[in-house]
Amino acid sequence: MRRRLAPLSTDVTSELALSVLDLAPVRENQTSADAVAASRELARAADRLGYHRYWVAEHHNMPAVAATNPPVLIGVLAAATERIRIGSGGVMLPNHAPLVVAEQFALLEAAFPGRIDLGIGRAPGTDPVTSWALRSGASGDEAVARFAEYVDNVVTLMSPAGAGVSVGGRTHELRATPAPLGQPPVWLLGSSDYSARLAASRGLPYVFAHHFSGSGTHEALELYRSSFVPSQDLAAPRTFLTVNVVVADTHAEAQELALPQLLAMLALRTGGQLLAQRLVESAAEVVVAESHRSLLEAMRGRWVIGDPQTAAAQVRALAATYGVDEVMVHPVAGARRDDPADRAPARERTLDLLAEALGQR
């Protein structure tokens, strides 16, 4: 039987748990090896500072993102840390066979028992051409249409009993791993109401991509909570909030450090050229088109950017607004030209300052 998850309280007067989302960003003076090394050090910092979990995303064929394969990166990060939960935020299930995903995460759970999370999403995580290549030329329409079935398959295949598959008039046993001691909890991720409905109907924990969308969060969480059906794994709705965060010693410095990622998101939203993430000095030289400035400022307004006390107050306010007791921060602080290529000092500093301001260390 799967491990039963305790429901998260919505009493935000209790201790607020902090977690981390990471895309393993690649900046203009880095190699992929540097980016992975920087993420490894960031995970170690999160582990040391008492963060609850550390999730990595799945994105493909993007110049600024090295997180192309969550299970591989999870293995690297779990091996480099001691306590923190490591997981996917998330695996884009239409890109993969359910059995492969189940096998990967069952093996990770065997290697790092009690420390693995499997977050599953429905989006492609890339452009149409790369999606075509990921699926060996097959259309992704069927995989998306069968998403709910594929989620059920992953959960069943990771269970100790496994699945029974009928082939040629016989039923064959199929398991993700021969003798599991436990299995990672499955979370559904989404930026629309589809995954909220599915998670509620299956009694699974759910996370809305507030850090990416910035709108619709209230509606999605209310839909999930109001339609939740308890399962043997989860007695009550369980969710948390994700948000882009930059914390520095001063508000002005935090704004400087936020600009590289703001420009990257602006390019993504407006069909601009996608590049390796700019350094802070390079970003300061960019002139934003007048027609795009309102969008950039709207994004800036949804992020947590500031000095430690201001940022901590914003994080607490977000937790209270959405009724959660866990916030997953996506530390998006940029790097300066003289920063070491294999570290992300401002991202590490963001985690350090926020944890201290919220009394986590």
Rank of each mutant, 00 (worst) to 15 (best):
A6D: 12
V12H: 12
A17W: 02
V20Q: 07
D22F: 07
E28P: 06
Q30F: 05
S32N: 07
S39R: 06
R40M: 12
L42S: 03
D47V: 10
R53I: 00
E58K: 04
H60P: 06
M62N: 06
A66K: 06
A66S: 14
V72T: 13
A79P: 00
R85Y: 03
G87A: 08
G89D: 02
F105E: 08
L108S: 05
E109L: 03
P113Y: 10
L118F: 05
V129S: 12
S139W: 03
R146V: 03
A148L: 06
G162S: 09
L181E: 09
Q183F: 00
W187E: 03
S191A: 15
S192C: 08
Y194I: 12
A200N: 07
V207N: 01
H211M: 08
S213H: 11
E222S: 15
Y224K: 01
A236F: 05
R238E: 09
T242V: 04
V243P: 05
N244Y: 04
V245E: 08
A254R: 12
L257Y: 12
A258Q: 14
Q261P: 00
L262Q: 14
L262K: 11
A264C: 00
M265H: 14
L266V: 12
T270K: 11
G272A: 11
Q273L: 14
L296P: 02
R316E: 10
L318C: 06
L318Y: 08
G323H: 09
V327F: 07
M328H: 02
A333F: 00
R337M: 02
R343G: 07
R343K: 13
E348D: 04
D352G: 00
L353V: 04
E356N: 11
L358V: 11
G359T: 10
R361G: 13
